[in-house]
């Protein structure tokens, strides 16, 4: 009788031991590639995308930046140095919509933000894109947007690697993460 109990106890102990999860060290998760779509032409639409892209390269992550629609202003020779903060329809500005629409308000807000950016020694948009290009990130323009706005490759800054289709983009982005801004 005693033996049986002991046997049972041993059996229970054994079965418990097999249920216990194995102690394994999980490998740290990493991101190998990100593709960032920049669709907005405002400072707050473009800057975060550049920070994300640059930051990813600094972590050794492969990066492709894909500029589409109004985001194309960031890679347009004559426009990339004149990117403005949106003061209308932007609750984050904490001002009345009508006030944001007054002449010169967007320019003033942009000037103030640019000063802060400079004070922190962050690069402006043209310098930032040049730097990201130097880190080895791919810089691409969207063919549909180029056609829509009537641009040619000559209208775009020299750092643009290629004008590509959405299909090319997906092929390029395959296996990585996609960020849309």
């Amino acid at each position: 009788m005693t033996n049986t109990i002991t046997d049972n106890a041993t059996e229970v102990a054994e079965s418990k031991a097999t249920i216990e999860p194995k102690q394994t060290i999980e490998p740290k998760q990493t991101i190998e590639k990100v593709s960032i779509i920049v669709s907005k032409g405002s400072l707050e639409g473009i800057y975060p995308a550049l920070i994300m892209g640059n930051g990813a390269r600094n972590e050794g992550i492969e990066v492709n930046l894909f500029f589409t629609f109004f985001g194309m202003d960031a890679i347009h020779k004559e426009r990339h140095d004149h990117i403005k903060v949106a003061t209308v329809g932007n609750p984050g500005m904490h001002m009345a919509t009508w006030a944001g629409g007054l002449p010169g308000v967007s320019a003033l807000a942009t000037k103030m933000m640019s000063k802060k950016i400079e004070a922190l020694d962050f690069p402006d948009i043209p310098e930032f894109i040049e730097m990201i290009h130097d880190t080895g990130a791919g810089i691409y323009a969207c063919l549909a947007s180029v056609d829509l706005f009537g641009f040619t490759k000559d209208d775009l800054i020299e750092q643009v690697d290629e004008i590509i289709t959405v299909g090319d983009f997906y092929e390029m982005a395959a296996g990585g993460q996609i960020i849309f801004t």
Binding site: N54, R57, N58, E59, G60, D121, P123, M131, D134, T135, G136
Partner: peptide, 28 residues
């Protein structure tokens, strides 16, 4: 330093930094 600072002040530019330390120059 961050990559930007390295590129500006270390005497090695951004392109070369990534050739020397491809998986992240500042971190590595």
């Amino acid at each position: 330093a961050t990559v930007r600072k390295l590129g500006k002040a270390s005497g090695v530019n951004t392109k070369e930094l990534f050739q020397l330390f491809p998986k992240g120059p500042a971190k590595l």
